[in-house]
Amino acid sequence: MRDLAPPNKQEERLLLLIIKQLPKKDILKTGTLFSAGGKQCLDCLIWSMSDCEALLEVDLDSEIAVTGRLICEAAYIDRPYGLLWRSGRKIGVDFDP
């Protein structure tokens, strides 16, 4: 199971630096996060995405499922995800193989 303790500032900067170095494609489309149990769905904005992760934006007070599916019909995305980090409205997710 993943440790979802909030990263400290140094860890957060390191994560953002690593994420920025990966080749990404800017998407800027709306999508939906579905929890693994399918009982919860949440609208999101997909900022950018690589083959293994994505940068999303959600409402500040939203509860995010640790695992689930990211679906965006406009960008032909339907992928299982795992929550990596959260900083305010921005979240990082990775995609399960």
Rank of each mutant, 00 (worst) to 15 (best):
L42S: 06
W47C: 10
L14P: 14
L42N: 06
G38I: 02
K25E: 11
P7D: 14
L4N: 14
D3Q: 11
I18T: 15
D78S: 11
E63C: 06
A65N: 02
K20E: 14
S62H: 04
T30Q: 07
M49Q: 06
S50E: 07
S62I: 05
W47S: 09
Y81E: 02
P7A: 15
Y81H: 04
G37P: 13
I77P: 00
T32E: 11
R13V: 05
M49G: 01
L17N: 15
E11M: 10
L33I: 03
M1F: 13
S87T: 12
E53K: 06
R69W: 05
L55Y: 03
T32I: 10
L4M: 09
R13D: 14
K9G: 10
K9M: 14
I19N: 12
D3G: 08
Q10P: 01
S62R: 01
R86Y: 07
I71W: 00
T32C: 06
S35H: 03
L70H: 02
D3T: 09
Q40H: 13
I64S: 01
D78A: 10
E73T: 00
E57G: 01
Y76N: 13
Y76D: 12
E63D: 15
P6W: 09
A74T: 13
T30G: 08
I71M: 06
L28F: 14
E53A: 11
E12Y: 08
P7K: 12
G82I: 13
F34I: 02
I19V: 15
R2T: 11
E73N: 02
